[in-house]
């Protein structure tokens, strides 16, 4: 099951993080993981709106018998991240934020991957837990 949410306005950002929370609750994730992912999505979606103007957030239920997995893919066609290592440093920002967004989001999830080139950026995040069935 997957759900694709357009990110064009601030209310889309709020909708995306609530949708992730809801999907995770239905999958059986606890409230800590729901909050982690919702917060991480908030950080990334904010970057999309700020630097690319618009993008999408896709929530993918990847669970199998052994594991609950929620994968979130955030994509945009903005200018891209020129220096990914630098962008992942605490306190680095090209905007006027604290620069806590990307490294903060990374610490909240189990897997975090950035692929970026001019005109296309894709960030993939996952939270995985043993299925408690």
């Amino acid at each position: 099951m997957s759900k694709r949410i357009p990110l064009q306005t601030e209310s889309d950002l709020l909708f995306a993080r609530q949708a992730a929370r809801e999907m995770m609750r239905e999958m059986g994730f606890g409230s800590a993981d729901q909050t982690r992912m919702a917060t991480a999505i908030s950080e990334l979606a904010r970057n999309v709106l700020k630097y690319a103007g618009e993008g999408t957030c896709t929530l993918i239920d990847e669970q199998d018998e052994r594991e609950m997995v929620l994968r979130v893919v955030v994509e945009d066609n903005g200018p891209g991240i020129t220096n990914i290592d630098q962008a992942m440093e605490d306190g680095f920002t090209t905007g006027n934020g604290l620069g806590a967004g990307l490294p903060g989001a990374k610490r909240l999830v189990n897997n975090f991957d950035i692929a970026s080139e001019p005109g296309y950026t894709k960030i993939t995040m996952e939270i995985r837990r043993h299925a408690n069935k």
Partner: peptide
């Protein structure tokens, strides 16, 4: 509680 948890995990003095 869950907000405190995420803020501390995200790191830095938020």
């Amino acid at each position: 509680p869950m907000v405190a948890l995420t803020l501390v995990e995200m790191g830095r003095e938020l």
